[in-house]
Each structure stands twice: as C-alpha cells, then as structure tokens.
Simulated scan of single mutants.
Amino acid sequence: MNNNQTPQQPAPQQYYYPDDEISLIDLWNTLMRRKKVLITAFAAVIVVAIIYLLLAKPVYESRAIVEIGRAGNKVVEDVNVLKQRLLAAYSGTAEFKIDALDTNPEGTKNSVRIVVHAGSLSKAKESLFRSY
C-alpha cells in the first residue's frame, strides 16, 4: 500500500424497489393458469341456482287496505275491533297467513292494511275476500 493513496470507499449499495403498479399481463396470465378453478366455481354456482329455482315453492302475496266507512258522524266499526275480527277469521288456516296487519297505514284514517302470503295465486286472492 502506498502512503499517498487514500483508502477506497466501498461503492454504495443499489437497492431494488419493486414497482407499485399491477401488470395486466401478469393478472391475465394468473387467470389463465387458474381457469379450471374459475370455470368450476362458476358452474357450481349456476347449478345450485338452477336447483333452487326448480325446488323452491312460489309464494304469492296479496295486499289490501280496508277503509272503514262512516254512518253520519259515527265510524261503522272501530279499527282495533276490525283488526281483531280479521285476525280471528284468518287464524288457524294452513293455506295462507297474515304477515302484516297495520292500523291506519301511511297516514290514512280508519283503515287496516292486510298483507297475506299464500302458496297459489288463487288462494292469495281468495284470502283477502274471505271474511268480507
């Protein structure tokens, strides 16, 4: 070593910083490598949906708002009394059931809203007119 020479400093290290960008080509290649899994999952979902559609029973809904009339200045029947009569008339039937029975719905006066679900269209229609 020569006294006139200065010691050499090591070269600074080069650090590699990966890009934060996602390559669409890499994504496409990954999808193509896994296409059997994707196709199998898609087919399974479609098969399950078709089976459900074939096995599910249709449910029909009927809705009505019954407004109670007046005779002169007097209401023909109290809303709560009508509600109890309707519940008694519709209870105990296996063909349909009342899902909602609200008094004075949506700001109406002296009325009852009935929502009935049934297994067939004719039963759904019939259920609303049964007690009248």
Results as ranks from 00 to 15, higher is better:
81 V>Q: 15
43 A>S: 09
56 A>M: 04
54 L>N: 08
2 N>I: 00
14 Q>H: 10
109 K>Y: 00
45 V>N: 03
16 Y>D: 10
24 L>F: 04
50 I>R: 12
130 R>D: 00
76 V>S: 09
6 T>M: 08
84 Q>H: 14
129 F>Q: 04
40 T>N: 04
99 D>Y: 12
125 K>G: 05
58 P>V: 01
90 Y>M: 07
103 T>D: 01
108 T>C: 02
13 Q>C: 13
92 G>F: 02
69 G>C: 03
9 Q>S: 13
76 V>Q: 15
61 E>I: 14
30 T>R: 09
32 M>G: 05
33 R>W: 10
20 D>R: 12
50 I>E: 10
88 A>K: 15
108 T>S: 07
127 S>Y: 05
101 L>Q: 06
104 N>T: 11
122 S>T: 05
98 I>N: 02
31 L>T: 10
62 S>C: 10
86 L>H: 06
16 Y>V: 14
19 D>C: 01
113 R>D: 05
45 V>H: 03
46 I>N: 05
61 E>Q: 15
46 I>D: 05
57 K>G: 10
57 K>F: 04
25 I>A: 14
88 A>T: 11
80 N>Y: 13
33 R>C: 08
63 R>E: 09
101 L>A: 03
92 G>V: 04
111 S>H: 01
17 Y>G: 04
126 E>G: 09
128 L>S: 03
118 A>L: 06
25 I>W: 10
33 R>S: 12
74 K>I: 14
38 L>Y: 14
84 Q>M: 13
91 S>G: 06
3 N>Q: 08
23 S>W: 04
10 P>K: 10
21 E>S: 08
12 P>F: 08
106 E>F: 05
59 V>P: 01
116 V>H: 03
74 K>Q: 14
81 V>L: 15
114 I>P: 00
46 I>K: 07
77 E>V: 15
90 Y>L: 08
113 R>G: 03
33 R>Q: 13
128 L>F: 07
68 I>S: 04
127 S>A: 15
108 T>E: 00
34 R>G: 07
29 N>H: 13
5 Q>A: 11
70 R>C: 01
43 A>V: 15
115 V>Q: 04
92 G>R: 02
89 A>Y: 05
118 A>E: 05
52 Y>F: 11
126 E>T: 14
54 L>M: 11
124 A>R: 11
83 K>A: 07
87 L>C: 07
106 E>Y: 01
66 V>A: 14
51 I>A: 08
2 N>G: 07
51 I>P: 00
122 S>R: 10
1 M>S: 06
79 V>W: 03
49 A>S: 13
54 L>R: 06
10 P>V: 01
16 Y>M: 11
110 N>M: 02
